[in-house]
Measured scan of single mutants.
Amino acid sequence: WEITFERNGKRITVRTTDHRLLELFEKLWRNGADERELERLAEEINR
């Protein structure tokens, strides 16, 4: 799966075969987690 999240013109794409990681990322994104931390998390998930 691949999903791109966008907020205030900032886009972060997450790619993984584990839908649970996408759900976790989406919850953090929707709850306003720090964008720098989300970028780092996305990099780890995308590996």
Rank of each mutant, 00 (worst) to 15 (best):
E43R: 09
G32W: 06
T13Y: 07
T16V: 09
E35I: 15
W29A: 03
D18A: 06
T13K: 07
R20W: 09
I45T: 02
R20Q: 11
E35S: 10
K10D: 02
R15T: 09
R11S: 12
I12K: 00
G32Y: 07
L28V: 07
V14R: 00
L28A: 13
W1S: 04
T16E: 01
R15Q: 06
R36W: 15
A33V: 10
L28E: 06
I3Q: 11
K27N: 12
A33P: 02
T16D: 01
E39M: 14
R36S: 14
E35V: 14
L24T: 08
G32S: 04
N8L: 04
L41V: 10
V14T: 00
L28G: 01
F25Y: 02
N46A: 09
E23H: 14
R7E: 02
H19E: 10
A42E: 03
W1D: 05
H19Q: 14
T17A: 12
W1H: 10
N46V: 07
T4G: 02
T17F: 15
L28Q: 05
K27M: 15
A33W: 08
R15G: 02
E35F: 15
N8T: 04
K27T: 14
A33N: 04
T4K: 03
E26N: 08
W29I: 06
R47E: 08
N8S: 06
E39W: 10
L38F: 03
T17K: 12
T17G: 10
K10R: 13
E6K: 03
F5E: 00
L41F: 12
R40G: 07
T4N: 06
E44V: 12
E43F: 06
A33R: 03
L41A: 05
E26C: 08
L28R: 07
E44T: 10
E43G: 08
I12F: 14
E39A: 09
E2V: 10
W29M: 06
R36A: 15
A42Y: 05
N8C: 05
R30L: 10
T13V: 12
E6Q: 08
H19C: 12
E26R: 12
G32D: 04
E35P: 09
R47I: 10
G32M: 07
I3E: 04
N31Y: 06
R11W: 13
T4S: 09
E35Q: 10
H19V: 14
L38A: 01
L22S: 02
T13M: 06
D18E: 07
L24I: 11
V14W: 02
E6G: 02
D34M: 15
E6I: 13
L41K: 03
E26W: 15
L38R: 01
E2F: 10
T13L: 07
L24N: 05
K10P: 01
I12T: 02
I12H: 03
L24F: 12
W29V: 04
I45A: 04
T4Y: 04
I3F: 14
K10A: 07
E6A: 03
T16M: 04
W1R: 07
F25R: 00
G9N: 07
E43A: 11
W29C: 03
L22C: 04
T13Q: 05
E39L: 13
E6V: 14
T4C: 05
L41E: 02
D34A: 09
T4F: 05
D34K: 03
V14F: 08
G9T: 02
L41Y: 05
E37V: 14
F5P: 00
V14G: 00
F25Q: 00
R40N: 12
A42G: 02
A33M: 09
R7L: 13
R36L: 14
A33S: 07
E26A: 12
E23W: 11
E37D: 12
E39V: 12
L22V: 10
R20H: 11
R11F: 15
G32C: 08
I45H: 02
K27A: 13
E44N: 06
E23C: 15
K10H: 13
T17H: 13
E35C: 08
L21P: 00
G32A: 04
L28P: 00
W29K: 02
L21M: 13
R47L: 12
V14Y: 03
F5K: 02
T17I: 07
E39P: 01
R47Q: 13
T13S: 06
E39Q: 11
R15E: 02
E26V: 14
E37A: 11
L41M: 10
E23F: 10
F5Q: 00
D34T: 12
L24Y: 13
D18M: 07
R15S: 07
R30T: 07
N31W: 06
R15P: 01
R20M: 11
L38V: 02
R40H: 10
E37W: 09
H19N: 08
G9S: 03
E43D: 13
E44G: 04
E43V: 07
N31Q: 14
R15C: 04
E43K: 08
E37L: 13
K10C: 09
D18G: 02
G9Q: 03
R20A: 13
K27S: 12
T16S: 11
L21D: 04
W1I: 10
R11Y: 15
E26H: 10
T4W: 05
G32P: 02
R7M: 12
R7F: 14
I12Q: 01
T17D: 11
R7G: 04
E35A: 11
R36T: 14
L24Q: 11
W1P: 05
R11E: 07
E35W: 15
W29P: 00
G32K: 06
T17N: 15
L38W: 09
F5V: 15
E43I: 09
T4H: 12
R40Y: 08
E44I: 13
N46Y: 06
L28F: 12
E23R: 14
E23S: 14
R47F: 09
I45M: 08
R47H: 11
V14S: 00
E2P: 02
T16I: 09
E26K: 13
I12S: 00
R11H: 11
K10S: 10
L24D: 05
F25T: 00
N8G: 09
K27C: 13
G9L: 02
N8Y: 03
E37S: 10
R40F: 08
E43M: 10
R36G: 13
T16Y: 07
H19M: 15
L22Q: 03
E23K: 14
R36K: 14
N31D: 12
H19F: 15
E2H: 05
E6N: 04
I3S: 06
E6P: 02
W29L: 04
E23Y: 11
E39I: 12
E43N: 11
L41R: 02
T4A: 06
N31I: 06
F25G: 00
N31P: 01
A33H: 09
H19R: 15
T17C: 11
D34P: 10
W1M: 09
L22F: 12
E26F: 15
E2M: 05
E44L: 14
